[in-house]
Design a binder for these strands. Structure first.
Lengths: 107, 107
DNA sequence: TTCCATACCTAGCAACGCTAGGTATCCAGA
DNA sequence: TCTGGATACCTAGCGTTGCTAGGTATGGAA
């Protein structure tokens, strides 16, 4: 369960440059230290949703072998959405930390 | 949206002692700095679910005026569930922070 | 030639939290 | 007096979200 922050995580994975779906999944897994090993059924629909929202733009790329990949890139509003997502995450995380009490926050 | 961590937040609100539903809502609002102003339709079903799971025990208390309150208390397994919830939150928060990159984590 | 990794897709489900409605008591103010 | 707001509880049903489980197809290695 990604608890509603999947969009921001996907957008963040594209911040360093365009990538195709499969690579995005790998990037998220790697960045999260394998904690987020997302099934394709989670990521592909999310990419479609984000493109629908205007936060991503996609292009079909054909490899030399004839293999097709869909490469996604952040749009301008996608970059803004990512910034919003980071703020929302931070606010949320602080509120949860305060609510849970104790030493939930790492040094 | 509480993104799946509502249970832990409710359990944490009861860590300092038994309380009734309405007071729990107030406690969560206060602890979170008003970020979590949860509707009753969120909290009451959650309390029922947590009791069903054996993490809370409830007793009807009748006030002097004849007013009824249902007071919830953490059970032993509820305390354990809270500890698990804290660990889960911490792991999740660290993975999101790593995935989002940038300075999402406060000093 | 068989298998695995790569690479994409979608229908349908389950869980979660919220909306929106309901009931009832207590107390302050008009 | 009586009206409204705070207190205090409840639930049916909805929308979103992410996942399961199935499908298609190519490339390369064993």
């Amino acid at each position: 369960m990604l608890k509603g922050h999947l969009d921001a995580i996907v957008l963040a994975a594209l911040e360093t440059g365009p990538a195709h779906g499969y690579a995005i999944i790998e990037a998220i897994k790697s960045r999260s230290g394998t904690t987020f090993d997302l099934p394709e059924g989670t990521v592909y629909p999310a990419l479609h949703r984000l493109e629908q929202a205007g936060w991503l733009a996609s292009n079909w790329m054909t490899q030399s072998g004839g293999r097709r990949r869909r490469v996604y890139a952040l749009t301008k509003s996608g970059t803004a959405a990512l910034a919003d997502g980071r703020k929302a995450w931070r606010r949320f995380a602080e509120a949860v930390n305060a609510s849970l009490g104790g030493r939930t926050w790492p040094a």
